[in-house]
């Protein structure tokens, strides 16, 4: 994440970690989630879903902060994020 200045409490606060779940068969390849994920977690995959659309895939899972923006933005209810539990 590009900060124009380092927050004073950067080291103390615990950044939440998220895990993205993608329901491929619902995706219609509009790429809104890829474009607007603030952490660039997603990229278009080469694979096709049953309807012939490319769907997003998680490329750097560690970056996800569980902000749910992909979830509320998605027009097809095809993606959502959950709290990443430690043991995963």
């Amino acid at each position: 994440m590009k900060y124009w200045r380092t927050p004073l409490d950067l080291h103390t606060i615990q950044v939440s970690k998220g895990k993205v779940v993608i329901i491929e068969e619902r995706c219609k390849g509009c790429q809104l989630c890829i474009q607007y994920c603030p952490r660039d977690v997603l990229e278009m995959s080469k694979a096709f879903n049953p309807k012939g659309y490319h769907y997003p895939e998680v490329v750097n899972e560690s970056q996800c902060v569980n902000c749910h923006f992909c979830e509320v933005l998605c027009p097809d209810f095809a993606i959502f994020s959950v709290e990443a539990t430690e043991k995963q």
């Binding site: 219609k28 659309y53 027009p75 097809d76």
Partner: peptide, 13 residues
């Protein structure tokens, strides 16, 4: 689901 609206349509959002 999946619904009828086109890819990129804003209605789903």
């Amino acid at each position: 689901i999946p619904h009828i609206w086109c890819s990129g349509c804003g209605i789903g959002t």
